[in-house]
Design a protein around this nucleic acid. Structure first.
Lengths: 176, 176
DNA sequence: TCTTTTTGTTTGACATGCCAATCAAATGTC
DNA sequence: GACATTTGATTGGCATGTCAAACAAAAAGA
């Protein structure tokens, strides 16, 4: 009913997630520490914005700071970053290697949804990808077959993502 | 580099998408027409909010109104709604029928990302699902096999979506 | 040491999107 | 016709997240 409102109820906003990622990336070269300026440069926003945003992240326990304004991910923050990065990577791998979505588009799409994927869904996608690279000959065959199927599909170029739900009803009837 | 900023650059916000969907849903029973109150009730927000939000949607050509304040999707708005609903449905079908994600979770996840999926990605996912229900015995076998694989996987219960990217590196090495 | 640059913070502004409260006009009811 | 309800719009408030501009303090260079 009101499922759509859960969008805002996320623990991590898109902006917050990328602040944490920026701290993580900068920290890789500086022993886990980052400065406001580095984060701002990494994100392409002003120092002022970062300064304000860090206040909220500190208050909620994602990051810590020392007396010299140096910023560091808290254990909780690090875990969140790893979870988000892993979700993004597995989604991107699925899009590029299974769905054959062009790399730039896969990068954009995975970046947009990385912080919105739930833990269960992320885990299942990991398992699915793990299955597909498990070496099982069937998996290889399927990927190859789908590539052919897709290349041959007459709707490949014109399909507008199933106007009017035709595909969905089809899927429901098939009930897999 | 600055890919993360494209999140805001979406043509449809989550809120806007659901306003359009609400108009669509209400309109199904009233020949395509909806009133502000109906939309507000459908979304669980106040009439005031809807009134203000509709102003922007009108200005950008997603909805039209007549002289009696009746609201209707423009052709462009209708197309957008169908695209979003189709993306949501195909994502949900993938999550539930392929990844075996529980229905409530699949509903939440698909709702969160429905408006963020690009057209190319949506189309490819449609083709993938179409392939899986094409009746090809190989497809059936794969789905069954993955179900087993997943049930047997010792990490099924504990995996934290691949802490530290181990899976990703694995996927890259495999290069599919 | 003196100057310049870099840095972090604060301020006022804007945009989105929600709320509650208020209001006028239209609609219903007696 | 008179009163009550429903409806759409407006207002002021709050929260997030961005900017530009101004500021003090620290760091770097001469």
């Amino acid at each position: 009913m009101q499922t759509w409102k859960e969008f805002e109820a996320n623990e991590l906003t898109h902006s917050a997630a990328h602040h944490l990622i920026a701290i993580y990336e900068v920290g890789l070269e500086y022993g886990g520490w980052a400065r406001v300026s580095d984060i701002a440069r990494e994100l392409g926003i002003t120092r002022g914005s970062v300064s304000i945003n860090l206040r909220a992240l500190k208050k909620r326990g994602w990051v810590d700071t020392d007396e010299h304004h140096m910023v560091k991910l808290s254990p909780k923050g690090l875990k969140a970053v790893q979870s988000v990065l892993a979700k993004k990577a597995v989604v991107k791998a699925f899009l590029t290697n299974v769905l054959n979505v062009p790399e730039p588009q896969a990068e954009i799409d995975s970046c947009k949804i990385e912080h919105l994927i739930s833990q269960p869904t992320g885990e299942q996608l990991v398992h699915f990808m793990r299955f597909l690279v498990s070496g099982d000959p069937l998996a290889k065959q399927v990927l190859a077959l789908f590539k052919d199927f897709h290349d041959q599909c007459p709707e490949s170029k014109t399909c507008e993502v199933c106007q009017g739900h035709c595909l969905i009803e089809e899927l429901q009837r098939a009930a897999l």
